[in-house]
Amino acid sequence: MPAPWYARVATTAGRPAVLAATLIMSMPGEYHVAKLAGWSDPWAYGMPFSLSAYAGIAAVVAATRPKGARGRASATVGAAFAIVLALAAQVVAHLAATGHMDADQAWLIAVTSMVPPAVLAHLLHLAATPDDGTSPSTSVDTEETTPLVERVEQEQQPAPAIPPQPSQPPAPQLPPVPQPVQPPAPIVYRDPRCAAIRPLYNGGTRPGTAAMRDALLAAGHGRVGDSTIRGVLRAEVEEHEPTLADYTPAIGSARAS
């Protein structure tokens, strides 16, 4: 089950708050120890910053570098040493402030004076040994210690090279298959007598009234008036096919049409 929202908020916001509070609470004791060792202002303020930065850098390096990486063991020792220094600074400062300890002692002043150069030397050592992402090897494979499977793979001969195959000519391109042409849909006239007149246009000329009358008689439609032939039947034929109206009138039918 996930933690309640207030627990997650307290954990997320609490860690930086606790870090800030502990740094602020530790600064007076570390500053006081620096003053007891003989540093004057503003140089005494450097002691809290050097110890805090040193502890943080060493802890991060020790936590992020993988096991066996270069500098990890040294960073781990440095992180522990920084914690011991911070604890000792707080204890000495409070003992001296409450009168339980005489701060004017040569060994205490000497140890405190060595803290900044020791911190600087160790930080330079960590910077000079960056993590290369590899772990040192502790053994060397020999013929006796190498697994049998690896030795068999090493003794296998390489496969013979396969000669290059001659390039194949490109496949011949087949001509495209012609698609069947769909015939146009037949024209359905409103007046079926138009079907007897339409073939007269096949000669490339526009038929006259007499030729259309004869075609209607031959088709069995009887005698049809000239106005009906021209105004109804021929008009419907040319309505469906407007290009027929542009044909040249047939010879001998120009006056009749």
Score class of each variant (00 low, 15 high):
T205H: 08
V188N: 11
L200K: 07
V91A: 13
P175H: 03
P249E: 10
G252L: 01
P242W: 15
Y6L: 07
L233S: 01
G38H: 06
L95Y: 08
V115C: 03
T228C: 03
E155S: 14
A235K: 15
P158T: 08
V60C: 00
D104Q: 12
V115K: 01
A53G: 14
L51I: 11
A63R: 13
Q154S: 14
T205K: 10
A185Y: 00
P136F: 08
Q156L: 15
V84T: 14
E153S: 12
T243I: 13
Y31M: 11
V111D: 01
P66Y: 02
P130D: 02
V61K: 04
G56K: 05
P249Y: 11
L95E: 14
R223I: 02
I162V: 15
A10W: 11
I197T: 03
A62L: 05
S40F: 04
P242Y: 15
P66N: 04
A106W: 10
P160C: 04
E30A: 10
P166W: 08
A10C: 10
A161Q: 09
W5Y: 09
A195T: 08
A254S: 09
T145D: 02
A254G: 09
A106N: 07
R15Q: 11
F49V: 15
D104T: 05
V92A: 05
P163E: 06
Q173N: 14
M47H: 05
L36R: 05
S167P: 12
Q168N: 08
A82D: 06
V177C: 04
T98H: 09
L174G: 06
A215T: 02
A256F: 00
Q154L: 14
G46V: 09
A254T: 14
A254F: 09
D141H: 11
V91N: 03
R213P: 00
F81P: 01
W43L: 14
V9C: 15
A235E: 11
V224N: 03
E153W: 12
L233H: 05
A79E: 07
Y31C: 03
P147I: 03
A235W: 01
V188E: 10
L120K: 07
T64C: 05
G208A: 06
G38M: 10
S52P: 00
P180R: 02
D104S: 07
Q165C: 06
D131Y: 06
G208R: 03
Q173K: 15
R70A: 04
S52G: 11
R213F: 00
Q179G: 11
A82T: 05
P166H: 10
A96I: 08
V119L: 08
L126E: 03
S139Y: 13
A195K: 06
V77F: 15
T129F: 00
A110M: 06
S139N: 12
M27R: 00
A159S: 14
D214I: 00
